[in-house]
Design a protein around this nucleic acid. Structure first.
Lengths: 207, 207
DNA sequence: ATAAAGTTGTGAATAAATTAACAAATGATA
DNA sequence: TATCATTTGTTAATTTATTCACAACTTTAT
């Protein structure tokens, strides 16, 4: 199914929102869900239409059906094995995030270069040396890497990950990394985000 | 000046890329800069056009001029005072990020509820109790808050920040927060990002 | 039954962002 | 000096995403 990234991101949020909140009803209207996430009802309806969910004209969308269909649409059958690359503060924070949210993402390994961490469990994840990325990625069928290393190592580590056959990278470093077309890259640029905020609050303007 | 958020984000990246890298030349072509950041030359030229930077038809854009004009465009005169709200792993990681990047963002306070941290310097930032947000935000003229608290506290803390007159929030929590129109909100949703990656690598498809 | 109220589902319109296309400019070269 | 190769600056075209608008439907109330 061919879906825009914007829709996928929203579907993920619909599911999480409805999964966490305890609804009094079995159904929800598009405008209620929209309000919860600062979206428009049309956006919600269109997204749900795209995945083929059909609501009831008087009751709205069945929440269980919605969650199940979103899961069927965006999750992979067997989940994804994820590695945290760079087990510093940020790596540990991301680990906690993924743990807390019950997703189909399994953290199966961490990588670092600190000998104090290697071979041990850090934040409950076995930590390997970055030099062993290739072997471990293959052996543990890791498809997604979260890149949380210091800027100086970002490029080399990313290159190594790509060579090892990783399929997706979530890049938290401030360094831009280049990936071949078969690797899906998502950047989270903290400084850029803050500078964007800075610009838009400069003269009282909002989004 | 009215500029789209997409352009602001790219301008921030142009500046950082050119500021960090050591160029042999004083000038750079749009296609070179584009290549460094996986963009198209047209995007680069358009962004620079929007801020009124004019290049040389044979040498490209003067790097110093570019950096200066981007700074003049996106930075505020006196910089922004930033608070880290929630000084756990993520808060400390963000602090390190902002420190490393030389920006006009000054981290002037951290907030937490852990009595072991309050009144002390954590990661070199004075840590106050969350209950004191109102006073400190006012007294230290804090305009941007980075929200790195656990999910359960996100809404309450955000409400408090908004009441205290904060102008921008970078929300790292998985909880959706609602802000009035005069507050600029930027969300960094780790789980959603990972689920988006998961979807697009499912069947070999790329962006 | 029938009407009333309110929602979905979706083409059509609009807005936003990107890409194409190319004239004008500039410096290098012959 | 004239030509050439190349890049900028920008208008127009295209693509992508959002919003509008409304017919069709579903339940409740009369």
């Amino acid at each position: 199914m061919r879906l825009p990234a914007t829709t996928i991101a929203r579907l993920s949020k619909y599911r999480r929102m409805l999964g966490s909140f305890n609804y009094e009803s079995t159904h929800i209207f598009s405008h209620n869900l929209a309000k919860l996430l600062n979206l428009t009802p049309e956006q919600v309806r269109r997204d749900l239409m795209l995945i083929g969910l059909t609501g009831n004209h008087r009751k709205g969308y069945n929440i269980k059906e919605l969650i199940d269909l979103v899961s069927k649409t965006i999750d992979s059958e067997k989940g994804h094995n994820v590695a945290i690359v760079g087990m510093g503060n940020l790596g540990m924070a991301v680990t906690a995030f993924i743990r807390r949210a019950k997703t189909r993402l399994n953290i199966v390994a961490a990588f670092d270069i600190d000998s104090g961490k290697i071979g041990k469990k850090v934040a409950d994840v076995t930590c390997y040396h970055v030099d062993d990325i290739s072997d471990i990625v293959r052996d543990l069928s890791i498809s997604i890497a979260v890149l949380t290393v210091p800027p100086g190592e970002a490029i080399d580590v990313a290159t190594l990950l790509i060579k090892s056959g990783i399929k997706g990278i979530l890049n938290f470093t401030s360094v831009h990394i280049d990936v071949p077309p078969h690797v899906y890259l998502k950047e989270t640029n903290i400084i850029t985000s803050l500078e964007e905020i800075g610009f838009f609050i400069k003269e009282g303007s909002s989004k």
